[in-house]
């Protein structure tokens, strides 16, 4: 194995490659620096909606109510929620209040995936997670999965609700990376950028949603007012 490693590296070291001749041009990262917060927010919303996501703006106080009325009928009943994140507690309470009796069946992601895998793939209809940042240029959510909100939560259920704070909105992906300054030791095990529901155009260039991941993506933007 290390034989191949050495052989490859030796061959690479034997030959010289010219460094790039051009000096790095000042690349406009696409961020409209003059934009005010409002314009950036508008841009984010337009891009997300163009990608077939549903966008809901709400305050910290009324988001569960707004989300309830925005969700499609019939309301998904089998939800996968974090067992520790404060947002999921709020949402669980709202669901139980709104849906009569105990019809809403909540599954908490409390153990390792091996314990919930079957339900996750077969019966869960929806999930709710937070998103750690939002990128206006491309209408993108950034999720940094954690023990609180594991990786598969935002991926396997057919409907995914992501809740994001308006204050985390940045103009571009570059801005997000500059803000985080990740290094090899600080970077999360997994980061995923999400820009709409899952889709494919693999059959005769016809766009279809819900190829493998969520068929529907709801984005709740929490604003101060």
């Amino acid at each position: 194995m290390s034989l191949s490693r050495n052989a490859i590296l030796n061959r690479l070291r034997e030959s010289k490659v010219p460094p790039p001749s051009v000096a790095p041009p000042p690349l406009n990262t696409g961020s409209a620096k003059g934009d005010d917060a409002q314009a950036t927010m508008t841009r984010f919303t337009i891009q997300l909606e163009a990608a077939h996501a549903q966008v809901i703006r709400a305050s910290a106080a009324d988001w569960p109510h707004r989300l309830l009325s925005a969700l499609p009928a019939p309301m998904p009943k089998q939800w996968l929620l974090s067992d520790t994140h404060p947002l999921s507690n709020t949402w669980a309470a709202a669901l139980q209040h709104a849906v009569p009796d105990t019809e809403a069946t909540l599954c908490r992601y409390a153990s390792c995936v091996e314990g919930v895998k079957q339900a996750l793939f077969q019966t869960i209809e929806a999930s709710l997670t937070s998103a750690q940042a939002a990128i206006a240029e491309t209408g993108t959510l950034v999720l940094e999965p954690s023990p609180d909100e594991p990786r598969l939560m935002s991926l396997v259920p057919p409907l995914h609700v992501a809740v994001v704070n308006a204050s985390t909105l940045v103009a571009t992906f570059t801005d997000y990376l500059m803000q985080r300054q990740w290094t090899a030791t600080t970077i999360p095990t997994n980061i995923v950028l999400i820009s709409g529901p899952s889709k494919t155009a693999d059959i005769q260039q016809t766009l279809a949603y819900g190829a493998h991941g969520p068929k529907a993506l709801y984005v709740v933007i929490l604003t101060d007012a």
Partner: peptide, 15 residues
Amino acid sequence: TYVNLISSPRRLDEK
């Protein structure tokens, strides 16, 4: 739609 950045296998505290 998705950009995956994978830097590590499951850590001990992950599910």
